[in-house]
């Protein structure tokens, strides 16, 4: 399953809920304000790094760039994808759910 998270980790606990529940082997895509969670050096980076060892964690390139983070170092194990990659992820996994 592909899990979508669009909330800033500093505003809501959405990413915590997603990482607590998502089964190992699933994928998480951070988009919109969710991309802030994927950047290296924040207070939630450790949590993301641990998650990235159990599942595939991606960050949406367009939303990073919009926020001035196009060149930001990401949490180790976290990958960039663009909208084409987003579509491919949605196909690769059997279903898609949004943590909103």
């Amino acid at each position: 399953m592909l899990h979508l998270v669009n909330r800033s980790p500093f505003e809501e606990r959405t990413i915590d809920a997603c990482l607590r529940v998502a089964a190992p082997g699933s994928a998480v895509l951070l988009y919109e304000d969710g991309v802030y969670a994927g950047v290296r050096g924040t207070g939630v980076a450790g949590r993301l790094e641990a998650a990235a060892r159990e599942m595939r964690v991606c960050v949406l390139e367009e939303d990073l760039a919009a926020r001035g983070l196009q060149d930001a170092a990401l949490v180790p194990g976290v990958h960039r994808v663009d909208y084409d990659g987003f579509v491919e992820l949605a196909i690769e996994y059997d279903s898609v759910t949004t943590w909103r």
């Binding site: 399953m1 998502a22 279903s95 949004t98 909103r100």
Partner: peptide
């Protein structure tokens, strides 16, 4: 963990 498995067992998961 059981909830994560439950999500995987459904076709359409809406929150």
């Amino acid at each position: 963990a059981a909830l994560g498995a439950l999500m995987e067992a459904h076709d359409v998961v809406m929150s």
